[in-house]
Computed example of a mutant assay.
Amino acid sequence: MERVMEIGRYSRQVLFQPIGVEGQLLLRKARVAIVGMGALGTALSSQLVRAGVGFVRLIDRDIIEPSNLQRQSLYDEADAEQGRAKAEVAAEKLRAANREVEIEIAIEDVNSQNAERLLADVDVIVDGTDNFEVRYLINDVAVKHNIPWSYGGAVSSYGTTAFFRPGHTPCLVCLFGPNTSGGGHDTCDTVGVIAPVVSIVASYQVAETLKYLTGNSDSLANSVTYLDVWKNEFRSVKFGVSKEACPCCQKRQFTSLTGRANGLTVSFCGRRTIQVRPSTGLGVSLPKMAQQLANFGEVRHNPDLLRCDFGDKQITLFADGRALIHGVDDEMTARSLYARYIGM
């Protein structure tokens, strides 16, 4: 009966010979975590859930805003108006597309304290983030626990992707060096992004993930792929060998995992938003905070988050004490607002 159900829903995928019935059954047993439910994450999750991956964990720290709608395909205007959590809305849309898949959400900011809890129990980790700090965390977890992961990045009209397999390919540190937490990378804030490059990079990531999960590892690209849809450029550079002196995959020094979680994250793609995260695990009562903040601005809340609108500035507060401070440019102002209304 199980085989009939698989063929019925996934008949066109099963007809693709490298997958077939056996590959489809392997997908049903597979577990995937997607880090980031923005532009890449929405495209990645839609393809993986519709392909029949049995378990998908959606991890995201952010809420939906109007500037997301140009490229983040699972969300609509009503979601943005309500300022709902991306992971929550994505899960609703994806469950409606395929109820056979178990979808779990984590409305969290991936950091050194929770990365292993969120990522170490799956078959593949898929990168839908927009910053290298989190990618180095993913790489540490992947190497430490021998889990393949799919790297993807898209900005402006260009993107890069690679599928890393610990023990078989170099790791992220081999390719780009140790994490120095430095800037200098293009972001959506500085150069923008168009939707076509997002879809193409996500499709490459999903294709590599499906190859691995269906037992077709011999077909993996084993390369770093770069493309620019506006300039009509495409390059694929084959992996070399792992660097003998690599501190991560050779010496097994997981510096991103052993570092302290940052108290502040500044870069949010496409708007003036600064994240404040307490250095200690501060839990808050959202209903109680809603009552307190109602004296200062319009408040909306649900079990996952609270949104308070002060006019020119807004605060989105999560149950773990993390907050997004909207309408500010500098860390001092963000911390001041957090201390004033939430308490440090």
Rank of each mutant, 00 (worst) to 15 (best):
E104N: 08
S73R: 10
L58W: 02
G128A: 06
T333W: 00
L306E: 02
T333P: 00
Y75P: 01
V4T: 11
G327S: 06
D329P: 00
A290I: 08
A334G: 05
M332V: 12
T265W: 11
M344H: 03
V35R: 10
M5F: 07
P166N: 04
V56I: 14
R340V: 02
P166A: 10
A90T: 11
I342S: 07
S279N: 10
S45G: 15
A120N: 07
C171M: 11
S11M: 08
G152D: 09
T333N: 01
G281L: 09
P178H: 02
G20A: 06
R9A: 07
E81K: 15
F254S: 01
D76C: 12
F254D: 03
G8K: 15
V155E: 07
A80D: 04
V35Q: 08
Q291A: 11
S236V: 01
I34L: 09
V21Y: 05
L48R: 04
Q253T: 10
G321P: 07
G270L: 01
Y75K: 07
D218A: 15
T160L: 14
Q17S: 15
L74N: 06
G192Q: 03
P178A: 15
A142T: 04
D330Q: 12
L25R: 13
T333Q: 13
V173W: 03
V21S: 06
C308L: 13
A91D: 02
M1K: 13
E108T: 05
S236W: 02
V237C: 11
P247S: 13
D186L: 13
R272F: 05
W149L: 04
T129Q: 05
G215Y: 13
S256T: 08
A162H: 02
R9T: 01
Y151W: 14
P18Q: 12
V21D: 05
T42M: 09
L137T: 08
K238N: 08
D123W: 04
R84I: 03
T258I: 11
P66Q: 01
R322T: 14
